[in-house]
Design a protein around this nucleic acid. Structure first.
Lengths: 223, 223
DNA sequence: CAGGATCCGCCGCGATACTG
DNA sequence: CAGTATCGCGGCGGATCCTG
């Protein structure tokens, strides 16, 4: 680290490590699991390749990220220390939510970010293991009593596999829209346990029930 | 805000607002209560007057800080929205704690930062209202079952007033040192309820009891 | 003297081209 | 695919100046 605030304070120390531009966004993307250099580059519109390389170098030097290489494929993943950035990212996410009435134009959308934000809404109300499939991208959500895990990648086993468009999923997550209606219109398809999908939605504060009254959008409800 | 990440994501939105250099450190200092321009300038070594003025302007434009003027004295304080930055700052503080074995040389120390970090350690174990006096600086800590409040300034009423040097307080808070020994050596003096001071220390995980075994430093114990 | 504004120089960052 | 090299600009650091 070249530039430092030179303050004996946890906040300042943390910002010395992860306060530079792009650093926390890289960590956010890595929270969903290991990523390759090109994935990170594509997922962070606006970052330049030299800066991404520099940030990864800094993160590795500080012990927050490690580089892995398996069968010639290099990847980056958070270390145990780096995973402790999660509370920071969740707190930032909750705060930023106040300013997310809707996507502004030029805003990039990423269903992975939506899934990450859904983690904050877990109520502990139910358990479920779900695979969400958005075209080529697969996510696994595992909700247990004491923890929630959201990862990108092919899951091992899930009670249900749900194929859904990002728009429909965002509508269900943020807009209080009904999964059933999206299913009728063909933008959502369930394989496996429909009950698990219901449990998942209940656990994350989504609208549940075929004939339930129209709920207010979660955008307005989130704590 | 001039520069934006252009991502529909709470983390990115939050960083659009408070991710620029110095912004979160200004918010940290304002968490302890309203501050005057000169106080902020003096409390943030390295910041320049132009940048402080710019950051305050941005924070006000975004509705996180408001300018107050009473009897010709201008001050800056967090708005209700700005106070919602506290979870972010606490999460940063906890993370940064991993890298705070001791003050490096050239590190500025500020007893206000130490008090703020102590907030995270509140166990809810006891209630107390304490005034801490470090030379010219007065802090009030109010611990209740459901919340903790730490403010700088002259308090209204406290069960006990404790005069202590910053070094001794840091030793008690971080180093597991004994309040009694500092009292004997004259670096700590208690006015009012000694019991309240004991309750305060217990509630914040400090060493309690005259003859208790030497505890490990809190630096090693903090979650 | 508090509360800023103005000017200048540098380096962190953005954009592009290039390499193994 | 996974980076490195180069260049230009603007955000930021340092100092000074202005105004009630």
């Amino acid at each position: 680290m070249k530039r430092s605030y030179h303050q004996f304070c946890g906040v300042a120390r943390a910002l010395d490590l992860v306060g530079e531009r792009w650093t926390l966004l890289i960590a956010r993307d890595l929270l969903l699991g290991p990523r390759r250099y090109g994935d990170l580059l594509a997922g962070l519109p606006g970052i330049t390749t030299n800066l991404l390389a520099l940030r990864l170098k800094e993160l590795r030097a500080n012990g927050l990220v490690q580089r892995t290489e398996q069968r010639g494929v290099v990847g980056y993943e958070l270390t145990a220390l780096g995973r402790e950035l999660e509370p920071i990212l969740m707190a930032l996410g909750r705060f930023g939510f106040h300013f997310m009435q809707g996507p502004k134009k030029d805003d990039k959308l990423d269903v992975g970010w939506a899934l990450l934000s859904s983690k904050r809404r877990y109520t502990g109300a139910a358990e479920a293991t779900i695979e969400l499939v958005f075209g080529e991208r697969h996510f696994q959500v595992r909700a247990r009593k004491d923890y929630v895990d959201v990862k990108e990648g092919t899951p091992w086993e899930a009670e249900a596999r749900v194929f859904v468009s990002p728009e429909a999923f965002r509508g269900i997550l943020y807009g209080g829209e009904s999964s059933d209606e999206h299913e009728k219109s063909g933008r959502l398809r369930i394989e496996g346990s429909r009950d698990a999908w219901q449990r998942y939605q209940a656990a994350f504060g989504m609208r549940v029930g075929k004939h339930g009254a129209k709920q207010r959008g979660s955008l307005e409800r989130e704590r």
